[in-house]
Computed example of a mutant assay.
Amino acid sequence: MDITIESIDTSAMKPLGLTQLPSYPVRFSSATVSGAARFVPFGDDASEYLGRTLCVELATERVTGFERIAPRNGAGFIVALDEQFAFKVVGQVGSVRFVTEPRGNVVIAVAAGAATFLLSSEDFPDTSLQEGDNVTFLVHELSLWDEEI
Rank of each mutant, 00 (worst) to 15 (best):
K88N: 12
I149L: 15
D133G: 09
D133F: 10
E122H: 11
F39H: 03
V99G: 06
T53M: 00
F87M: 02
D146H: 01
F85S: 03
D9H: 06
N105T: 15
S95F: 11
S121M: 09
P15N: 09
A86W: 03
E148D: 12
V96W: 12
H140Y: 08
F117T: 07
S29N: 13
I5N: 03
E148N: 14
F137H: 08
G91A: 11
N134I: 02
P102V: 11
A70C: 03
E147P: 01
T10M: 02
D82W: 06
G76W: 09
V90G: 10
A80P: 10
R62D: 13
G94M: 14
Q92L: 04
V90P: 04
E148K: 14
K14E: 13
A114K: 02
P102I: 09
A112F: 07
V106M: 12
E101T: 14
L129V: 15
S34Y: 05
G17K: 11
I8H: 06
T4S: 02
P41S: 04
T4E: 07
F98L: 07
R38L: 15
L119Q: 12
R72Y: 09
D133P: 07
L50Q: 14
S95H: 09
T32V: 04
V99D: 02
V106N: 05
R97C: 08
F42K: 12
A70F: 10
E67T: 13
W145H: 14
A59P: 00
P71I: 05
E6V: 04
L138P: 00
A75E: 14
G132D: 08
S23Q: 10
K88M: 13
V135Q: 09
A86T: 06
G51C: 05
G35H: 01
P71H: 11
G35K: 01
S30Y: 01
L81P: 04
R68S: 11
H140A: 10
A31L: 06
V110Q: 05
R62M: 15
F87S: 00
S121R: 08
E57M: 07
L119Y: 08
R97T: 15
G51K: 01
T10P: 02
T64D: 15
V40N: 00
G43Y: 03
T64K: 09
E148Q: 13
G132A: 10
T53V: 00
R52N: 00
T53K: 00
V99F: 04
T4I: 05
G113D: 04
F98N: 14
F28G: 05
F98C: 06
